[in-house]
Design a protein around this nucleic acid. Structure first.
Lengths: 207, 207
DNA sequence: ACTTTAATGTACGATAACGTACTTATAGGT
DNA sequence: ACCTATAAGTACGTTATCGTACATTAAAGT
């Protein structure tokens, strides 16, 4: 496996395009975006050091209709798709462990769906920042409101407003182009039930 | 495998509880519900004759944090979890095929998430009814507004209103406790981009 | 036929989020 | 030190959806 460096914005996977590389990120964040044929899009999943890109390969497929994009720059251990397939076939325990991760990811998708249906932008933003915080080792997450708005599928102005509330409550400290989690317990309180289920599933299944 | 009959409301799987039975439905519909510890809930996935319950078993696990509930009565071919695990271990091609279905399901989760973030209740309802229609052989789907409201995670009154619009446009005909798709192409037009991606993925991967 | 219950229709003020536009501030290059 | 581009703050009218409540209707049992 080769160690790579990924900049923000790098596209690792494209809808309907064969995946050539599987990556196991070090601290940082990669996001999975769903979109419709017409281009309506939103982030549906987050991948960090707890997981991997190239999930379709675990299911015996070489693509899916999502895009995978680096959100917070990170290094990663990468392996060619063909080599990865070979390893999977040889090492059953590895395949089994990674399949367990696939379930954790799918629980994350499901809970994200629930959040989009039932929670406010502020709660969803808190959830998102917490998940991001879990996966990086930075003080400051390099994120613009614009970026967050595409992730959550809401207006840019909506992010500004929600973020100001998080700021006022002392949960985060946001600078231009960056956000720092200040008080994690307060964030947890704000996110409430929106955060936690996939995390518990991860612990149950992989720890 | 044993053929079973499932009534509406039957709970096949409960959050965090070991799954004892895997079911391959005949025409009808089973839904997967996500919920938070506090009880906020919504449907995140739909299972019909194209798929199966007991997805965690495919990933080497015996439970997940979702509930699986029969929505439209159906028959199904069922097999004990232990027997199913044995078959999976013996028959690699079967496991591989079912894993491909697991990916289709997970694409469905992702698109559902996107829909909840970006589409109106009317569109989401149209999508849901279409997906339901795909999986049953009935003229009339036995669904109350109350039920639909828990599925979509919206007000019961919101369903009534959205449904009246579908009615007025001639897309559906709704009776007390039942809804019939009248004009599928009109439904497709209303659902727009909300419907289709997981269906295409199914075709690509399993047909 | 009458009663009961569940399902549906409808209303109304409140709130969350939208689309859009314009202003202000900050970082980075010259 | 000054420009300039990008990021962020803010405003305003509009729309979707909410919470809640109440009235109406259809099926099901006696």
């Amino acid at each position: 496996m080769e160690r790579c460096s990924f900049e923000q914005g790098l596209v690792l996977e494209m809808p309907g395009t064969a995946i050539t590389k599987v990556c196991f990120p070090e601290p940082g964040m990669i996001s999975v975006m769903a979109r419709t044929p017409v281009g309506v899009q939103a982030e549906v999943g987050i991948i960090g050091p707890e997981g991997m890109t190239g999930l379709p390969l675990l299911h015996g497929l070489d693509s899916w209709p999502h895009a995978t994009i680096v959100q917070i720059p990170c290094r990663a251990l990468c392996i060619e798709a063909t080599a990865f397939r070979a390893v999977l076939a040889e090492c059953r325990p590895l395949h089994e462990r990674l399949l367990r991760y696939a379930q954790v990811f799918s629980v994350q998708l499901a809970q994200g769906s629930l959040c989009n249906a039932r929670f406010t932008i502020e709660q969803r933003l808190a959830r998102w920042l917490l998940m991001c915080h879990d996966r990086t080792d930075r003080e400051d997450l390099p994120l613009t409101h614009e970026l967050l708005s595409t992730m959550l599928g809401v207006r840019r102005a909506g992010i500004t407003t929600a973020l100001r509330m998080l700021n006022d409550s002392g949960a985060v400290k946001s600078r231009r182009g960056g956000i720092g989690i200040r008080d994690r317990s307060r964030m947890l309180a704000i996110a409430g039930d929106a955060y936690g289920v996939p995390e518990d599933e991860y612990t149950r299944v992989l720890a």
